[in-house]
């Protein structure tokens, strides 16, 4: 079995990345010698960290590495770039992973075992640890409303069929959008709760992150045509941005044409629960 892991770098914390590469080399998925892990680092700051990261990678002969650099095209676009440039049908899974997380040694095996058990009919997120995302998932079936791009595995065929992430989103909520599109096509979203991915969240958003998050929310609301949520986000954006900045954003943020009938998504797209986009467990 062959898995491609895509990690987007942008001044990423090297101490955590170092631990993660180490833990990826310790995956029990690799106990089967026919299995391979190939990690693709896409440095969105023109290759700023590639030298340092490649030095870390030199210590691990049981993993394969590829390095890509370029300008900051955003989270989803960078993963798409990796997928479109390198991933072919020889790979079974495409896994997108945050650079500020650490994989448990049994994470990949548990993700893949679960995916196989469910006929690869969906997308599969590792559970965030120690602070779980509060969104609901079913205790028995593990089905959830959407999968976080923090650590999410796609069967290659499904990622290809969905056309990857929507590149209108710079950062945040591209995962919500992709999950909704997957569910619309009849695939399920799963939270694999015995596949642990350490992700440290301090719960406090910086001003820049808050702006990015609201911009993405605006695009999501526009795409799925939820007027109430869109107005709410506009209010937040008008507080965060200068008037001219806001006007520029609104007229330029969406390059694609969303004329197709996203109204059919009413049963899937959940704007009732604000930024959770799902019922919460607490």
């Amino acid at each position: 079995m062959k898995i491609a892991i895509s990690i987007v770098l942008f001044d990423s914390p090297l101490d955590i990345l170092k631990k993660n590469i180490y833990m990826l080399s310790k995956q029990d998925f690799l106990d089967d010698k026919s299995n391979t892990i190939e990690i693709f680092f896409c440095d969105n700051k023109n290759g700023n960290q590639i030298k340092l990261v490649s030095e870390i990678c030199n210590n691990y002969s049981n993993l394969k590495f590829q390095f890509i650099d370029g300008e900051n095209v955003g989270f989803g676009s960078a993963h798409n770039k990796v997928f479109n440039s390198f991933i072919d049908k020889s790979y079974d899974y495409f896994l997108v992973m945050n650079p500020d997380g650490i994989s448990h040694s049994r994470m990949l095996k548990n993700l893949i075992d679960f995916a196989v058990k469910n006929n690869n009919n969906g997308i599969f997120e590792a559970i965030q640890f120690p602070e779980e995302h509060p969104k609901f998932y079913d205790k028995d079936t593990k089905k959830t409303q959407w999968c976080s791009g923090c650590c999410c595995m796609f069967p290659v065929k499904i990622f290809e069929e969905l056309g990857g992430f929507d590149e209108n989103f710079f950062m945040y909520m591209e995962d919500v959008d992709l999950s909704w599109r997957a569910r619309y096509k009849g695939y399920n979203c799963y939270t694999v709760n015995d596949a642990l991915f350490f992700h440290s969240v301090d719960g406090r958003l910086g001003n820049n992150q808050e702006i990015l998050m609201n911009k993405s929310a605006y695009i999501l609301a526009t795409k799925y045509n939820d007027v109430h949520f869109k107005n709410k986000i506009l209010k937040a954006l008008s507080r965060l941005l200068e008037k001219s900045e806001l006007e520029f954003f609104i007229s330029n943020c969406i390059k694609a044409n969303y004329s197709q009938d996203y109204e059919n998504y009413q049963a899937i797209a959940d704007f009732k629960n604000n930024f959770y986009f799902s019922e919460g467990r607490w």
């Binding site: 448990h104 040694s105 640890f129 642990l196 350490f198």
Partner: peptide, 15 residues
Amino acid sequence: KKNIERAIFSVFCST
């Protein structure tokens, strides 16, 4: 063992 590994994993991730 699952819990043991989860606890030790949290120690491993400690800064």
